[in-house]
């Protein structure tokens, strides 16, 4: 049982990171990015090829983060432009369609050029005992990196002027404009940040399991579930929901079977929406 819960927490912290980028974009501008997982996969491939070319893991990971951020910037500058001209429901729907199209193109291209290609970052050394449970070093390092990333995110939003400006746009876009904040520039910044976070998903995930060219949609779907449960626009909600769903996932896989765990997660999300439509830490409109 303790082993299950620890595994669940470790997977859950990851899930939180998967959702963080997605929830920020949605909370900020009502844009749903269904290519989130593909950004992670692109970054994973960049990292894999960079290491093949002889680059050490650390600078190669830095390169992957940079590429993730650039893909986010690319989306902001290209396919999201028509999206920004719309408001409300139409904006959500168009963003969903266009990013889905982009995701299919990326998936199709990668499967055609690099079928079966996968990234795994091998973290050596034996297992470490935590509460009597042997844990793999790769999992622990991935969790540590993710937690540091969350701490950095929280500090950014709480203590910096730019971070507060991002929060202000999430809370009241017109109010933000009235104090001189340009919502379009904040959105661009967050798309870049979200791309970097997606790339970090690839880097940390590949320390635990291999990330292959087809992993994109799996990541996006789980990130969406976590986003909905945590509350749209809430990074702390993403982390909390990630940990809860991570534990639910591992226990469900253990009790019912892996093939059913995704169904259990969807059920958990559905129940959350029924009880709290805005999600765990979301704010009712």
């Amino acid at each position: 049982m303790i082993a299950n819960i620890l595994d669940g927490i470790i997977f859950g912290i990851q899930l939180g990171l998967w959702a963080a980028g997605l929830t920020l974009i949605y909370g900020l501008g009502g844009v749903l990015n269904l290519a989130h997982g593909q950004i992670a996969v692109i970054s994973a491939m960049v990292l894999a090829f960079a290491m093949d070319a002889g680059l050490p893991a650390l600078p190669a990971s830095g390169l992957a983060l940079l590429v993730g951020g650039l893909v986010g910037l690319f989306l902001d500058l290209t396919i999201l432009r028509p999206v920004y001209r719309l408001q409300g429901e139409a904006r959500v729907l168009l963003s969903l369609l266009l990013t889905l199209g982009f995701a299919f193109i990326v998936d199709g291209f990668l499967n055609w050029r690099y079928p079966g290609r996968a990234l795994s970052l091998f973290i050596g050394g034996g297992a470490i005992d935590i509460l009597g449970v042997p844990m793999r070093r790769g999992s622990l390092l991935a969790s540590a990196i993710t937690l540091v990333a969350f701490a950095a995110l929280f500090s950014f939003f709480r203590f910096t002027t730019l971070g507060r400006a991002v929060r202000s746009v999430i809370e009241d876009e017109e109010g933000a404009r009235l104090v001189g904040i340009d919502p379009a520039r904040i959105m661009r910044l967050i798309l870049v940040l979200s791309g970097v976070l997606a790339a970090l998903v690839a880097v940390t995930r590949s320390m635990v399991v291999s990330v292959d060219v087809q992993a994109g949609f799996g990541i996006t779907v789980l990130a969406l579930i976590v986003t909905v449960v945590g509350g749209l626009g809430s990074v702390s909600g993403a982390l909390l929901a990630g940990i809860i769903l991570g534990i639910v996932n591992v226990i469900a896989a253990d009790v019912i079977g892996t093939f059913m765990s995704l169904v259990v997660l969807l059920l958990a999300a559905a129940v959350t929406i029924l009880i709290r439509p805005a999600g765990l830490l979301g704010v009712e409109e």
């Binding site: 507060r164 202000s168 009241d172 109010g175 009235l178 104090v179 904040i181």
Partner: peptide
Amino acid sequence: SFVPAERRLFPRMTVRENLALGAYP
């Protein structure tokens, strides 16, 4: 500076954070 009738404050931020954002950037 414009003060709209609906005020358009940032409700989940503190008084001080709201004021500080007034001086943005």
